[in-house]
Nucleic acid binder design. Sequence first.
DNA 1: GTCTATACAGGGATAGAC
DNA 2: GTCTATCCCTGTATAGAC
Lengths: 196, 196
Amino acid sequence: MAKRRDITRDELLDEAEHLLRNHGYNGFSIRDVGEAVGISSASVHHHYPTKGDLAAAVLHRYRERWNAKLGAIAMEHEDWRGRVAAVVAAFAGMVVGKGSACLLAIACVDHASLSNAAQAETKLLHENLTGWLARFTVEAKKREEIAASHDAGTMAESLLSTLQGALLLSRVAGDSAFAKVTTMLADGSMHRVPGE
Amino acid sequence: MAKRRDITRDELLDEAEHLLRNHGYNGFSIRDVGEAVGISSASVHHHYPTKGDLAAAVLHRYRERWNAKLGAIAMEHEDWRGRVAAVVAAFAGMVVGKGSACLLAIACVDHASLSNAAQAETKLLHENLTGWLARFTVEAKKREEIAASHDAGTMAESLLSTLQGALLLSRVAGDSAFAKVTTMLADGSMHRVPGE
DNA sequence: GTCTATACAGGGATAGAC
DNA sequence: GTCTATCCCTGTATAGAC
């Protein structure tokens, strides 16, 4: 049979993303992706010539998803606490459950194994995420919702670091540990209210 | 020649740790370890029968090193800020530079690939690290150096999460980003002083 | 777009000599 | 304790038929 069901690229990316999250870049094979979706490894190569291309595509789609999500959060929430809570919820929702772990963390650990394209996507992913968080921080400072003790870039990096770390550690610490840490974040305990 | 130079286990562990940090568990081979230290893969297997055993040994030694370090910090510093600064410095020293990344983060990402022994070591590593940090937190609360707004376990987990995340992200964000985040941590901006 | 077949490299692990 | 040789499997990738 010439075609079994004409796999869509999204199906391929879904499986690749799932495997990448749970096993790391060197922990899954093109064959694994094919089997999961019901085609041969040769067919996977038809859609994405190399494993590096596949990983770059997965990262690209992931990044776009995050940008859409953070843009929506920026629209839906105007206050700092609301935005932080929404970001935390987004991380918990997009990322926890079927395999936890954010692709950014995975990509950092496996950075040396990635293709140039995938490394570039990783850098962009980090820049986009911190960019949004820094924007939120700047606006919150203008509204005097948080103290201006540190620059926005550093606060954004710190917030992202905590989220990434907590997500990663949840594999040994359990989901409840992640929930506790993010609750602490969302409570705003990281950022002093001005006047104190 | 029967023996070229009688490799010590520590040499093997040094190289294995270096490779594990920089390439992840599935990103290096037993052959790589052997070549780096100057022996064949078969000889590596003589010291550590399986790759899982080797990884478990690396993690075990790493954990003991951290426990020794944190014990020393507990002795040398009595105040919260001093201890946090020392922990941050220890992370920067033990971990940044030749390959950054903490083995705990690596082990979490590659968790599914690890042997039972290595997974158990990972869990212990996490427990030991959070254990020390929680102890520091409890004592700081008693001395009223920090507010008792959250339980010690959560604060410890949060502190460790931030450190792990910042270390990981430094691969794309640069060492300066790690420095800024940890400076913010060491300043104690995470933890309100009581009475505010 | 999918398949089978295949090339080729690399990885984990073992056997047995020295 | 180290070596060489080897087994067997897996991984990436390609060629060419359907």
